Measured scan of single mutants.
Amino acid sequence: HTVDVQGVTYHFDNPEEARKFAEEMAKRLGLQVHVKDGRYKVE
C-alpha cells in the first residue's frame, strides 16, 4: 500500500496504517487525500 506525499513515496504493509498516515499528513500539511489507482496521494 502506497502513500505519495508531495512526490515522496511511503510504503505500508497494512492498508489501515496507510490510510491513517495519509490522513495525518494531509491534516498536517493542509492538503487533500486523493485515492488514485489504489494509491493514496496527498496533494
Rank of each mutant, 00 (worst) to 15 (best):
E17V: 09
H1D: 06
E17G: 08
K27Q: 12
V33D: 01
R19C: 11
H1K: 09
M25D: 01
K27I: 10
V5R: 01
G7R: 04
K20Y: 11
A22T: 01
D37N: 11
Q32D: 07
N14G: 12
A26P: 00
V42S: 02
G38I: 02
K41T: 15
D13E: 13
E23G: 06
Q6C: 15
N14I: 09
V35P: 02
R19M: 10
V35D: 05
V33C: 08
R39Y: 13
H1S: 13
L29R: 03
F21W: 07
V3Q: 00
A18F: 00
K27D: 09
K41G: 06
A22Y: 00
E24M: 13
D4F: 07
F21L: 03
E23A: 07
A18T: 03
H11N: 11
R28N: 08
G7D: 07
L31M: 14
Q32E: 10
Q32N: 07
H1A: 12
M25R: 05
M25Y: 06
R39E: 14
E43L: 07
H1L: 10
G7I: 01
V3Y: 00
Y10V: 06
A18L: 02
E23C: 14
Y10C: 10
K20D: 11
Y40G: 05
K41M: 15
R19Q: 09
D37V: 02
G38M: 03
D4K: 05
Q6S: 08
E23Q: 09
Y40T: 08
Q6K: 10
T9Q: 11
G30K: 06
T9C: 15
D37K: 05
F21Y: 07
V3P: 00
H11C: 14
P15V: 11
R28G: 06
H11V: 13
V35F: 15
A26T: 02
K27E: 12
A22I: 01
E24Y: 12
D37T: 02
V3L: 01
R19P: 02
T2V: 15
L31W: 08
T9S: 12
E23K: 06
E24H: 10
T9A: 10
V3I: 02
K20P: 02
Q6F: 13
Q6T: 10
E24C: 14
F21R: 01
T9M: 14
R39Q: 15
T2W: 15
M25K: 05
R39C: 15
K27A: 13
A18Q: 04
M25E: 14
K27S: 11
A26H: 01
E43C: 15
L29P: 02
G38C: 14
R39D: 15
R39H: 15
Y40M: 13
L31A: 08
E16I: 11
L31Q: 04
K36F: 05
R19D: 03
G30A: 04
T9G: 06
V42K: 02
H34R: 09
K41D: 09
G38V: 02
R28L: 13
K36Y: 05
M25Q: 11
Y10L: 05
D4L: 08
K20V: 12
M25V: 09
K36T: 11
D13Y: 08
F12E: 00
Y10Q: 04
T2N: 10
K27W: 07
G30N: 07
E24K: 09
V3K: 00
K36M: 10
F21G: 01
V5E: 00
K20S: 13
K36Q: 13
F21P: 00
V42W: 01
V35G: 10
F12D: 00
H1W: 11
A22G: 03
P15A: 13
H11F: 13
D13P: 11
A26K: 01
V33P: 02
Q32H: 14
A26V: 01
G38K: 05
E43M: 09
R39W: 09
V5M: 05
N14M: 10
V33N: 02
L29F: 06
A18C: 10
D4T: 07
G7H: 06
R19N: 05
H1Y: 12
M25G: 02
F12N: 00
H1F: 12
D4P: 01
T2Q: 13
N14H: 13
E16K: 08
M25P: 00
D4Q: 09
G30R: 05
V8L: 11
D13K: 09
K36L: 09
L29K: 04
G7Y: 04
Y40V: 11
G7T: 04
V3E: 00
H34I: 14
D13Q: 10
E16Q: 11
T9D: 07
N14R: 08
Q32S: 13
Q32A: 14
L29I: 03
V5L: 09
